[in-house]
Computed example of a mutant assay.
Amino acid sequence: MSVDLRVEDGVATITLNRPERSNALNQEHYRGLSTAWIEVRDDSNIRAAIITGAGDKSFCAGADLKEFIPNPPEAREMWLTQTDQLLNRGLEVWKPIIAAVNGWCLGGGMTLLFATDIRLAASHAQFGLPEIKRGIIAGNGGTQRTLMNLPYPLAMEMLLTGDPIDAATAKNWGIINKVVSADELMPKAMEYAHRIARNAPLAAQASKELALRSRDVDLATGLRMEQMFNRFLMSTQDATEGARAFQEKRAPRFVGN
Rank of each mutant, 00 (worst) to 15 (best):
M156S: 10
V11S: 06
L5G: 00
I176Y: 13
T52K: 04
G62S: 07
Y152F: 13
K133M: 11
M190D: 07
A197C: 10
A189K: 05
L212M: 13
F114A: 15
V93D: 12
D238A: 14
G162N: 11
M148E: 15
S44K: 08
E184M: 10
T221M: 09
N17R: 08
L147N: 14
D166S: 09
A54D: 05
E39S: 08
A170T: 07
I175P: 01
A115M: 05
L159W: 07
V93N: 13
I165K: 01
R119G: 12
P72K: 06
K133R: 15
T169P: 08
Q126D: 02
A75I: 13
Q247P: 00
R195M: 13
I132H: 02
F229H: 10
L113F: 07
G141P: 06
F68K: 02
S2P: 15
P19Q: 04
S235M: 10
P151A: 14
F59G: 05
N172C: 08
G32M: 03
E74V: 14
I98T: 09
I165F: 01
A49S: 11
L86Y: 00
F68L: 14
T15P: 02
A168L: 13
V180Q: 04
H29Q: 10
E67N: 08
P201T: 07
V7Y: 03
A24V: 00
E226K: 11
R195Q: 14
H29W: 02
E209F: 12
N26T: 03
A197N: 07
I196W: 09
R231L: 08
V11A: 02
N17A: 14
L147V: 13
L33Y: 03
D42R: 06
E248C: 08
M186Q: 12
N140E: 01
A170M: 09
E92R: 10
Q144L: 14
H194N: 12
Q237S: 13
A204G: 04
G174M: 06
T52A: 09
M190R: 12
I38A: 08
L210I: 15
D238P: 12
Q126E: 09
A206T: 15
T161R: 15
G53Y: 00
S22R: 04
P70C: 05
I69F: 06
R18H: 03
F68T: 03
P252F: 05
L113H: 02
A61E: 03
V179S: 01
R145D: 12
R231F: 03
K95F: 07
D9C: 04
T143F: 01
N199E: 04
D56S: 13
P187L: 14
I14P: 02
D117F: 13
